[in-house]
């Protein structure tokens, strides 16, 4: 008997090859082709250039906008609201989720309320936020972001806590692990994969709401830049900033996935299982 040499991580597995090309090159090719179509459609007159400028014009407008201080302060504001909102949702969602998930009676008591409140769209709270905190207060934006991201995290945390393996729990009991030790060494690690999923979903909706807030006139983030371009009839800039928010979304998702892989190296979805 001997253990096999260092575990292969999912990321270093040989890339699946199709038609002799690695996956990422195909993905890149798809993106380039998509940009090409966006460029050609208005140029060939299939759709009106007035409402749909060529891809190069969008990128040009974005690059131009990126040269201004306004752009970067707006980006900073959007990201700040996103980060603070997500952090609050995370702390509240995980804390309450662990509590509700580990007390069966609490879960039965809250289940119907959670199912009722969860589908309420965050944007429906905009008038309330404005009334309570005012139009320029960052708390208005935070209210929207926290409300949207909180449920994602909460639901996942509740499910995660309930996924504790019965044998693992009996092992903990027979070795005298107390309440705190069980939470730290058993319940939390079991719930972590779920919480990570909640973070990833929450991070995405938080970004959506951070941009939305600016569009409806709360705060001055990227959303506000889009509205400003609209009122100036600057269509290429509208598209340029929309592209930029899309890029932000991709970066947020990549970061969340990297964090997930790091925190869950032991988990069956990430590890390369060698044991029988």
């Amino acid at each position: 008997m001997s253990i096999d040499a260092p575990t292969r991580r999912a990321g270093t597995m040989p890339a699946r090859r199709q038609s002799g090309l690695p996956d990422w090159s195909l993905g890149l090719f798809g993106l380039v082709a998509f940009a090409g179509v966006l460029e050609l459609l208005p140029r060939t007159g299939v759709i009106s250039e007035r409402y749909f400028p060529p891809f190069s014009a969008m990128v040009g407008a974005l690059v131009e906008a990126m040269g201004t201080d306004t752009f970067w302060s707006a980006t900073g504001e959007t990201l700040q609201a996103w980060g603070i909102g997500l952090a609050i949702a995370l702390v509240a969602g995980v804390g309450l989720g662990l509590l509700i998930g580990s007390v069966p009676i609490l879960q039965r008591l809250t289940a119907s309320t959670v199912e009722f409140l969860r589908p309420v769209p965050s944007v429906a709270l905009i008038p309330l936020a404005v009334l309570v905190f005012g139009i320029t207060n960052i708390r208005s934006t935070l209210l929207l972001i926290v409300y949207a991201a909180f449920w994602q995290v909460l639901i996942q945390a509740i499910y995660g806590v309930q996924d504790v393996d019965p044998v693992a729990r009996e092992t903990a009991r027979s070795y005298q692990l107390g309440r705190w030790a069980r939470l730290r060494h058993l319940v939390w690690p079991t719930a972590l994969p779920y919480v990570m999923t909640g973070v990833r979903l929450g991070a995405a909706v938080a970004l959506i709401l951070a941009v939305t807030a600016g569009i409806v006139g709360i705060g001055q983030g990227l959303g506000w830049l889009i509205v400003r371009a609209q009122s100036g009839n600057d269509v290429p800039t509208i598209y340029g900033i929309v592209l930029f928010t899309g890029l932000l979304g991709v970066v947020v998702n990549l970061l969340a996935r990297a964090l997930e892989r790091r925190a869950l190296a032991w988990h069956s979805s990430v590890r390369a299982d060698l044991g029988g």
């Binding site: 008997m1 253990i3 096999d4 575990t7 032991w266 590890r271 044991g275």
Partner: peptide, 16 residues
Amino acid sequence: GEVHDAYPWQLSGGMQ
């Protein structure tokens, strides 16, 4: 004696 830093799932069933 040699597997302190391995994870259980890196070991065979008998070793686990």
